[in-house]
């Protein structure tokens, strides 16, 4: 097992508001255009997936996902402390987002 370490500042929290699948994303930047908070910026490489520059400003309305034309290219990630739970009535099993 090879370890490595970097001098890195703490990330803003939550720091992972959306996941972009680079295999599906076409880099059209419709999500970048429509985001209310302007969280995303275009990738330095043409057609690359957008970069999440200001994840701490995301308010999770999902407009980026609504605007996306490529199914599965962008998904919203609920912050851990805000993931709601539910219980299956018949079995009593518990689940969460």
């Amino acid at each position: 097992m090879k370890y490595s370490a970097y001098a890195m500042p703490n990330l803003p929290t939550p720091g992972n508001c959306v996941t972009i699948n680079p295999d599906i994303c076409t880099g059209c930047c419709r999500c970048v255009e429509v985001c209310i908070m302007d969280v995303l910026i275009p990738n330095p490489e043409k057609k690359g997936p957008p970069i999440i520059l200001y994840p701490d400003e995301c308010y999770y309305d999902g407009c980026c996902v609504e605007e996306c034309r490529e199914s599965g290219a962008i998904t919203l990630n609920h912050p851990l402390m805000q993931r709601v739970r539910w219980k299956r009535k018949d079995t009593g099993e518990h689940f969460r987002v």
């Binding site: 803003p12 939550p14 701490d56 308010y59 609920h78 402390m81």
Partner: peptide, 8 residues
């Protein structure tokens, strides 16, 4: 400044 997420 942090931990805002969904509630705002």
């Amino acid at each position: 400044s942090e931990l805002t997420g969904l509630p705002y």
